[in-house]
Nucleic acid binder design. Structure first.
Ligand SMILES: [Zn+2]
Ligand SMILES: [Zn+2]
Ligand SMILES: [Zn+2]
Ligand SMILES: [Zn+2]
Lengths: 133, 133
DNA sequence: ACACTTTTGACAATGGTTCTCATGCTGAGT
DNA sequence: ACTCAGCATGAGAACCATTGTCAAAAGTGT
């Protein structure tokens, strides 16, 4: 390995102002938001295609959480890095992050019991919050 | 009350041949299928719109289970009437219905604890089955 | 057969998401 | 600071699952 070899020029994920804007928008707002909502919230200053691309990247990188609402639309939210689930208000969207060791244990046990490996799961809880009652 | 009064003529959900065909298609095949797949499986003998309408009805009536694949598309499957969840193989799609009283209890408790009412939830477990390992 | 309601299906219309590609920027090297 | 290759952007087209429209077809009770 020649020491002169440049570090392969690692492609690059550039911190462009658009990407920063999308990330900031997620920081600024609570709850889950669709790509279109973020696009609007930014006053259209960031192209819709770019918003979609950025959100997909962030989600793949694990920096944001992506889930689907009941209509199957993708919605995103800045989340803590640890594994958790959501309790979402059907009416106002207010979201609470919840953890459930019991559930994690249960899913793993059930999966193992049936011979399934590489287990993952999705769990979302929907309801109507106090303020919307 | 005049005896001539017809019993309110209760509209009716007619067991048309199209509806029966869709239901039969679900019976015949294992695993989850999209509306379009069912439409094709029926050789287009049942209009796509009708397939969609029928599946929606069946799902609302609780006769079939609807979930969304990772692309957000709706997929349906004939299921037992009781509330349950699925353990799905990412590779071959083989599905196992699982029940988890503990999970049900946990979600309700968590929701109540945070003041949420009318609670519902979605929980799917993904993994690789023994045959696909 | 008649009057009336439900259902169907071809096709149009929606709407979220992705693709295209010409143009804009960035950044490393000079 | 200047250059150039390549990543990034965005306007709009393209996709595609799903829903809406509505006239024709089928079913129901009399
Ligand atoms: Zn609420
Ligand atoms: Zn979990
Ligand atoms: Zn399998
Ligand atoms: Zn459950």
């Amino acid at each position: 390995m020649t020491s002169t070899e440049p570090q392969a020029q690692q492609s690059g994920v550039r911190p462009t102002k658009q990407r920063l804007a999308v990330a900031a928008a997620l920081e600024a707002t609570a709850g889950f938001h669709s790509a279109q909502e973020i696009h609007e919230q930014l006053g259209g200053s960031v192209g819709l295609a770019t918003v979609y691309r950025t959100l997909t990247m962030l989600a793949d990188a694990g920096d944001v959480d992506m889930m689907r609402n009941e209509d199957g639309e993708a919605i995103y939210r800045r989340c803590s890095g640890t594994h958790h689930h959501h309790l979402v208000c059907r009416s106002c969207g207010h979201t609470v992050e919840v953890e459930g060791p019991a559930v994690e244990r249960w899913t793993n046990a059930i999966a193992a019991e049936h011979g399934y490996a590489d287990v993952s799961h999705t769990l979302e809880i929907f309801g109507t919050c106090r303020d919307c009652r």
